[in-house]
Nucleic acid binder design. Structure first.
Lengths: 205, 205
DNA sequence: AATATTAGTGTACAAGTGTTGACTGAATCA
DNA sequence: TGATTCAGTCAACACTTGTACACTAATATT
């Protein structure tokens, strides 16, 4: 038997999943109606208000959730990975797999990063900052990065995070049309990231 | 006195401008209604159909229009500029100015690149390809780029175009909150682009 | 001058929208 | 056991939505 609290959390999740499902089906988050979400969650429209005041609030919670998932992924990868030569390739492989396994989330993020409300956009920007910082402290330890100063290291991390995320929409779109594209995408990304990495190695303020 | 054809083109433009205006005001293109657009264009809803079958078709035409404007900008800049050492800085300055002078267009593009219909997204992707090609043939002539092979040159161009465009949403958002941000944005971009450029210079397949 | 074309109008309709307020019944607490 | 809390229901509201159809009047064509 489920406790009341637990049940509530369950329908709350249903609502978020419903919204994500619609986004994954091609709808734009900002044009999804509260009613449609409620319907797909198997709940009456007015019930929505027991969980969120707004579609925006729901969206902000989705951002949070994905943030958590990504942080967990990062922690796990860091432990198992070890920073070898092929860091770039393995990282991007982990990332693309993760994206493909959470397509709806990433469609949502890609959309809202540019098309959400201001609050939503800046929530996403904050997540980026977080990841850029994590990345910065990770790569600081690397031998290539001994000479670079702290501010420039932040800049490189930002560049990497932004660039990877911004390419995600292409991955999502093109994987749909041709399933072999994921490999091609990885090759392209590895090349581009190596190039950036190369630049970072030579960088002097 | 205006000819009928000319008058038609005028209201057609009004419709597109109305849509862009709404986008620039914070609405998401995919949640804008045909009726609202018609109203803001000073025309009755049903009149919309004399020009476009759809909001999507309107959107595709907006993409085209901006593509034209950008090509014109590119041609002019190429003539006047001359490819000196400070190519990167002057290019990014021209670009940011252009963005700030066409805010609505770029909000629209940023939104639709990730949140438009599939047709819209791929139309925008095509524009990118075009610009990447232009850029590739421009930088091929540069002394730094003599050793790089053609395919890798394309890769570098893509990287540059994508990266600049994807940063545009931050420029738009943050310029609104603090007007001095444009300068800071330029500095950040110049740094990042120099880094990429540095990598490109050292690049060997 | 008579005719055909067509951009823009006006009306109408069925369907969907967010949000309100009063309600029900089962889980929780006293 | 009896009282309370509250997630979910139901009905109703005022409004907005896309689109069909018949119409008008000014322009373009013959």
């Amino acid at each position: 038997m489920l406790s009341r609290e637990e049940k509530k959390r369950q329908t709350r999740k249903s609502l978020m999943d419903a919204a994500l499902g619609l986004v994954g089906n091609g709808d734009n988050f900002s044009s999804i109606s509260l009613r449609e979400v409620a319907k797909n969650a198997g709940v009456v429209p007015t019930s929505f208000y027991r969980h969120f005041t707004d579609m925006e609030e729901l969206g902000l919670n989705v951002v949070d959730d994905l943030g958590m998932l990504l942080r967990k992924l990062m922690r796990n990868t860091r432990q198992s990975g070890g920073y070898a030569e092929s860091l770039t390739r393995s990282s991007i492989e982990v990332y693309t797999d993760f994206v493909c396994q959470h397509r709806n989330y990433f469609y949502f993020m890609c959309q809202c990063r540019t098309g959400g409300t201001l609050a939503l956009r800046s929530a996403i920007r904050n997540e980026f900052k977080y990841f850029a910082n994590e990345l910065a402290s990770d790569i600081r330890a690397l031998p290539v990065m001994t000479e670079i100063d702290s501010q420039d290291l932040d800049m490189v991390s930002q560049l990497l995070v932004e660039f990877v995320f911004e390419s995600t929409i292409d991955l999502l779109d093109l994987v749909d049309t041709s399933p072999t594209y994921q490999k091609e995408f990885i090759e392209q990304m590895v090349k581009k990231l190596r190039l950036i990495w190369l630049g970072a190695g030579k960088w002097r303020s």
